[in-house]
C-alpha cells in the first residue's frame, strides 16, 4: 500500500503529511500534528471524546480517515482559545466545573460549539440531546449542561453568538 499526501487546514493553519490510507484523522491530529487535545476514548465511534469540527460539521475523528480530510478544514480544541483568552465554552466549563477527570472535555466542548452554532438558544433538553454522542463517566452531565447554558447566554449577550460560532463551525479562527 502506498502512502498518500494529505493537506489539511487545521485551526486555520495549513498542515500536511504523508499517511497510510488507513490512518485515522484522530491519529493524524495527535501523532503527526502533535495536537493531543483531541482524545481517543473508545475507538468505536461511541464516546465522542475525539469530536472535532470537520468541514463545518461535528465529527468523531476516530471514524474519519486522514485521507478523507485531504483538502478539508478541521477545528480542534486547540483552535478555540484566541490570544490567551479562553473561548466562552472553555471558560464556562471552568466556571461551572463541567468536568472531573477532563478526558471527555475536548469532545464535549467541540460538540457544544457546533450545537450553539446551530442553535444559539437551546433548551436544557436540546443541550442534552445535542451532546448525546459524547459520554462522560464522571459528572452525570449536570455541570456540563450548566456550562453550555452559561456559554450560550454569554455568546448571545455578546451578540457574537452567531457570527463567532459560524466561524468556528466553518473551521475558521
Amino acid at each position: 500500500m502506498t502512502t498518500q499526501h494529505v493537506r489539511v487546514t487545521v485551526n486555520g493553519q495549513p498542515r500536511e503529511a504523508d499517511v497510510e490510507p488507513r490512518l485515522l484523522l484522530a491519529h493524524l491530529l495527535r501523532d503527526a500534528f502533535g495536537l493531543t487535545g483531541t482524545h481517543v476514548g473508545c475507538d468505536t465511534s461511541h464516546c465522542g471524546a475525539c469530536t472535532v469540527i470537520f468541514d463545518g460539521r461535528s465529527a468523531k475523528s476516530c471514524t474519519v480517515l486522514a485521507v478523507q480530510a485531504n483538502g478539508a478544514e478541521v477545528t480542534t480544541i486547540e483552535g478555540l482559545e484566541q490570544g490567551g483568552k479562553l473561548h466562552p465554552l472553555q471558560q464556562a466549563f471552568w466556571d461551572q466545573h463541567g468536568l472531573q477527570c477532563g478526558f471527555c472535555t475536548p469532545g464535549m466542548i467541540m460538540e457544544s460549539t457546533w450545537l450553539l452554532g446551530q442553535n444559539p438558544d437551546p433548551t436544557e433538553a436540546e443541550i442534552r440531546e445535542g451532546i448525546s454522542g459524547n459520554l462522560c463517566r464522571c459528572t452525570g452531565y449536570v455541570n456540563i449542561v450548566k456550562a453550555v447554558q452559561q456559554a450560550a447566554a454569554e455568546l448571545r449577550a455578546a451578540g457574537a453568538g452567531t457570527a463567532e460560532q459560524a466561524s468556528v463551525a466553518a473551521g475558521g479562527r
Binding site: 465522542g48 461535528s58 465529527a59 471514524t63 474519519v64 450545537l115 445535542g130 451532546i131 448525546s132 454522542g133
Partner: peptide, 9 residues
C-alpha cells in the same frame, strides 16, 4: 439515528 455526529455524516 445514532447521535448528532452520526447524523451529521
Amino acid at each position: 439515528i445514532g447521535d448528532p455526529q452520526v447524523r451529521n455524516w
